[in-house]
Nucleic acid binder design. Sequence first.
DNA 1: TGCGAACTATTGCGTGAACAACTATTGTTC
DNA 2: GAACAATAGTTGTTCACGCAATAGTTCGCA
Lengths: 162, 162
Amino acid sequence: MTNTAPTAADPITDERLTATGLLEEVRAGLQEAFASQFAEQGLSPLEFEVLLRLARSPQHRLRMADLAAQVLMSASGLTRVADRLEAAGLLERSSCSEDRRGTWAAATPAGMARLRAMLPGHLEVIERWYTGVLSPDELDLLIRLLRKIRDVVRPGAVAGVA
Amino acid sequence: MTNTAPTAADPITDERLTATGLLEEVRAGLQEAFASQFAEQGLSPLEFEVLLRLARSPQHRLRMADLAAQVLMSASGLTRVADRLEAAGLLERSSCSEDRRGTWAAATPAGMARLRAMLPGHLEVIERWYTGVLSPDELDLLIRLLRKIRDVVRPGAVAGVA
DNA sequence: TGCGAACTATTGCGTGAACAACTATTGTTC
DNA sequence: GAACAATAGTTGTTCACGCAATAGTTCGCA
C-alpha cells in the first residue's frame, strides 16, 4: 500500500530500494535503446562518449587523465579505448610539450565525421525514449532534481561538462 | 530558463546529451557510494541485487529465468552469479517438479541473514546520497517522472517489482 | 642543486559478463 | 503420437574493464 507515513516496516520492501531500482531500470532501458544504433555504427557506448567529450573540447582534444575523468573510467581503461579508436583512425595521440608526462588525445576529422553522422539518429532515440516522454516542464524539473543529486554524489563535477 | 525556443543548434552541444549524461553521472555516483559497503560485506552489487529479489519473492525463491529478468542480466551471467552465491552458502538451487527444465533459486537462511545485516547500512547510504538529498515532495516527483520513462523504455516491467 | 614525493600514461594480470553452442524438456501441429 | 519448434539452464569462449606494478616526468623543499 502506497503509504504516506514513515513506516519502520521491513527493510526488504523499503521504498528507497525501489527508488534505486527505478534509476537502474531507466538507465538499462535507455542503454538498450541506444545499443542497436551504436552497434550498426561499430562503436561501443564508451567509444561514442569519448568522441563526444573530445568534440566538445577546445581543438577537439583533451589530456588523457581529464578525458578519463569525464567519461567516468579508469586511466587504464581509457588507454585501451583510445587504442581501439586510434586503430580505427578516429582518434590521434600526440605528446604534450608543456608537460612531457602528458598525452593529448584528439578526435581526427574522421572521428568528428563519424560522430556527426551518428548524432542526429542518437538524438532522435533520446527524444523518443527519454526527453520526449515528458512535457518540457517535467523535463526541466527532472533535470533540476537529478542535478541536485549529482552535485552531492559528484561534487567535483559541478564545473564539468554537463 | 536555459531555452524556450527549440534551437537547431550544433548537435554536439545539444541539451539532450547532457540530460543523458546527467543520468549516467548520478548512477555512477551512487554506485561509488555503495561500493565500499558492498566490498566489506564481500558481495558484488549484482549478488546483493539477486539476494534482494529473492527475498522479495514468495518463499524467497524464483525461477532462474525470472530472476535473470529482474536483475537485468543474461541467463548465462546469472548462472555464474548463482554459482558464486551457492558456493558461499547464500543461495540454494532445487529442481522444479512442474517443469523439469526449470530450476528454483532460493535464498538460504544464511543468505537472508546476510541481506538483513547489510540492509540498514545500505538504506542509510541511499538516504544520505539520494533520497535524503531531496524534499519528500521532490522525491515523490522524481519517482513519478522516472516511472513515466521506465514505463516507456521497459513496458513489460510495469507489473514487476519496482 | 639534488633527492624524494607525487603525477601521467601504459602494461600484465585477474575477473565478470555477454554471446553462441549444446542438452534436456515441453508444447504444438498434423 | 511423432516430428518440429520453442524454452530453461549450463558451458566454452571472448572481451572489456579495473587494479597493481612500472617507467618516465615534474614538483617541493631543504
